[in-house]
């Protein structure tokens, strides 16, 4: 079977700097995969290349949505990438602070709604129906993620952990088959991290999602991941299951070396 995400020889240059150098990563359906590496290794750049925020200098990004044929994402604008079923969260939380929690999730529904300007002004029954359903669907997602008590709260007033969960809720609203999480546990306390761990597993098992996450919390990565990819200085240096990665001398040298006590 084709991998659900197949990144081939991805290279991203910023001027003379090669942020990514010939990185190839394949992710199978239903996997929880992790992308790890020291700060500045090019992990977020990798996400940005997949989601269309950057146009990679070389290489290709291919997806195979369930039940559909393989297609390339290269050169697509971010909104089309999302439309094709790849959603993401951000390392530095990027919520819409002028909106309520519910509206933040409703924004995620945007690309799945069809009513245009004329319909918004005239509000025919079809638009009302759709709008009502969007509200309902968004509320349901908030319920699943456990944020339903904050529906009308302004997003900016939520706690840090809740904001991170709201980002996941918002990404879920776009109906993805592949979810990219950029440091979802950053800034969370141990209790919140545990809840996040459960949430990610739940997303994979109940929502049929494939998940690729960037994370620095080694405990979380090792307990969650089916497969780990390691990058350093823009190059992929290792790939394997948690045991293999823990034992890989090159990874220890590049990354886990200083932190091997925690891991």
């Amino acid at each position: 079977m084709e991998p659900i995400l197949n990144v081939k020889n991805l290279t991203m240059k910023f001027g003379g700097l090669k942020a990514l150098d010939d990185v190839s990563i394949a992710i199978e359906k239903g996997q929880i995969a992790a992308l790890i590496g020291p700060n500045g290794a090019g992990k977020t750049t990798f996400f940005n290349c997949i989601t269309g925020i950057y146009d990679p200098s070389m290489g290709d990004v291919q997806i195979t949505p369930p039940g559909k044929s393989t297609q390339s994402l290269r050169g697509l604008k971010p909104n089309y990438v999302t439309e094709r079923g790849v959603a993401r969260t951000f390392q530095n939380i990027r919520l819409f602070h002028g909106m309520t929690v519910l509206e933040n999730v409703m924004i995620g529904r945007h690309c799945r709604l069809s009513s245009g300007i004329i319909k918004a002004m005239l509000r025919p029954p079809s638009q009302r129906e759709e709008e009502k359903k969007a509200v309902y669907d968004s509320y349901e997602i908030l319920e699943k993620i456990g944020l339903d008590k904050y529906v009308n709260e302004m997003a900016v007033n939520l706690s840090y952990g809740a904001q991170r969960r709201l980002e996941i809720a918002r990404a879920m609203a776009t109906e993805p088959f592949l979810l990219l999480l950029d440091e979802p546990a950053a800034g969370m306390n141990p209790k919140e991290t545990k809840e996040l761990d459960d949430l990610i597993l739940w997303l994979r098992d109940n929502e049929n999602l494939t998940i690729l996450l960037i994370e620095h919390d080694m405990k979380l990565v090792m307990s969650l991941s089916d497969r780990i990819h390691v990058v350093d200085y823009g190059k992929k240096i290792a790939e394997g299951n948690p045991q293999e990665i823990k034992a890989n001398p090159e990874v220890i040298k590049a990354y886990l070396g200083e932190e091997s006590d925690d891991a």
């Binding site: 909104n79 999302t82 919520l95 819409f96 002028g98 909106m99 509206e103 690309c111 245009g116």
Partner: peptide, 23 residues
């Protein structure tokens, strides 16, 4: 409406807005 929310989202964060599938 859908379009109004998209405007506010665009004002608040352009990149996140695009990542949510908004042109």
């Amino acid at each position: 409406s859908k379009i109004g929310r998209a405007w506010i989202a665009l004002r608040d964060d352009e990149i996140a807005c695009q990542a949510m599938g908004i042109d």
